[in-house]
Simulated scan of single mutants.
Amino acid sequence: MTRTTRLVAVAVALALLTGCTANPTTPSEPTGGASADGTSSALPTRASSELADWATALDDRDDYSARWVAVGDSISEGMGASTVDSRWIDLTLDGLRERYPTDDVPGGVGYRPAAFAVAPPASTWARWASSSEGSVSASSRTADLGYRSVTLGAGATTTYPFTGTDLDLWWSSGRGTFSYTVDDGDAVEVDTRDSMATSGISSVTGLDAGAHTVTIHAETPVDIEGLTAFDGDRDRGITLFDSSRSGATARTFTADLPGYLDSIAATKPDLVTITLGANDAFSRTPDQFEDDYRTLIDGLQSLDDPPSVMLMGEFVPGTNLTEGLAGDASEYDAVVQRLADETGSAYIDLADALPADGVASLLSADGVHPNDAGQRVIADYVLDQLSVR
């Protein structure tokens, strides 16, 4: 049963704030109220319809998990951040959990790919496996959450650390066989050729809270897509699924749209944020970009249980994203805003978060990607946009 069919709509009001402060007030769970004459002080806004599914999910997080999928390019994947945990998407997740706590649910890191696509010197954590033996290589051929799988050759072994009570191991079907072991437990055999789906998920539940490792051994060549680590939040709380890829364009996700939508549907999303455009602008005209972007949004909205969608403008004045484009940066910004209006999606602009004056201090050496301070500023801003008012 989907969230839409099992939940009664909750009357909530959302407000998209304009502007941001690097020192926000202490997070607290916003609540509605009534004025002296008994009328509600939480009046509906345009955003209340655009983000209604997300608002309902947050309200119902004690009984069902609220699931956010972050689609995007290097701005979302976290290029420029010094560690994976200091990315704005992870910081926003932390803030959401502070504002909307769930009893006895710390929450895990959510879905992370088998290998990230970020690159040094801006970021040095592309591979997060703690050890590997044999042929282990990053691959972008699979329409997983961000096209960031890892191919293990026959006999190869790789180990990932994770913290939590549950784990989902995502793999591509039709390739071969592998086994996985959690800590010192028994090996579990997986034959990926038994599945007719575009991807498969092997689940581990009931682990003691704390640090663990999962070791994957390939008997024949296989593709491992990623891992979702839960810490009490498999069915409650708020979970993040990272579906970004450095260098991505809208066409990255529409090249195999059915396969990608299968991966998205497996997350059961309540919210999808999309941060794209910068890479498109170097190779696609504004009209071509609009066609690609619209195809992606239409695909998300065609899911059996479509999520709320928020589009994010990423052309920030003062960054090195204005030269060598196939069109003017303002034209690409206009495309995103127009698509938000025409598809009923929410819209925010990162230019409202990063100040026109002094933005250089919030960027890494390349003048494009936010450094740790910039990641924090974006996280504070996006947190306010995703908070129920």
Rank of each mutant, 00 (worst) to 15 (best):
P106G: 06
A154C: 09
L16V: 09
A156T: 09
L145K: 03
P355W: 00
D333V: 06
I264M: 15
A353P: 03
G19V: 01
I224P: 05
G259A: 06
D94G: 13
T157I: 11
Y347S: 01
A197T: 14
G299I: 05
A15Y: 00
G146N: 02
G324P: 09
P161I: 03
E290Q: 08
A66S: 10
T295H: 03
V12T: 09
L363A: 12
S74T: 07
D53M: 05
R236P: 07
D372S: 11
R175L: 00
A11V: 06
D341R: 14
A57L: 09
T165E: 07
G358R: 06
L321M: 15
M312K: 04
V118Y: 04
T102H: 07
V382I: 15
P161Y: 04
T275I: 04
I224G: 07
T92L: 09
A138D: 14
R87W: 05
E29G: 12
I75E: 06
E29W: 06
T215P: 03
L96D: 00
W54L: 03
T165S: 12
A209K: 03
V109S: 12
S244W: 05
V150Q: 12
D90M: 13
D37W: 07
G134C: 10
S173K: 08
R376G: 00
T26H: 12
W88A: 02
G19M: 04
Y332T: 08
S28V: 13
Y293F: 15
E225Y: 00
L363G: 09
V368H: 05
G134I: 11
A119H: 10
S149P: 04
G237Y: 11
S149D: 10
S244F: 02
A197M: 13
I89E: 02
P355M: 00
R389W: 13
S137I: 06
Q337C: 01
L51K: 02
V214A: 12
D37F: 11
W54G: 05
S28A: 14
R284D: 14
L257Q: 13
C20F: 01
V12C: 02
M310S: 07
T92K: 08
G38N: 08
Y347L: 13
E29D: 03
T285L: 05
A154Q: 10
V335Y: 09
A360D: 10
T5W: 10
G134N: 10
V150E: 12
T39A: 12
G19Y: 08
F253Y: 15
L7K: 03
G110Q: 08
T181R: 15
E290F: 00
G277D: 12
V335M: 08
D186G: 11
L325K: 12
G237M: 09
S244Q: 04
V69Q: 03
T31C: 11
L152F: 02
L240A: 04
T56D: 15
P221F: 05
R234P: 00
D287Y: 07
F253W: 13
R148K: 15
V309F: 06
A47N: 05
D103S: 13
G174F: 05
T181F: 01
T213C: 02
L91K: 09
Y160K: 08
S40V: 13
W125R: 08
A218E: 03
D287G: 04
G259W: 02
R338M: 12
N23E: 11
A57Y: 11
L240M: 06
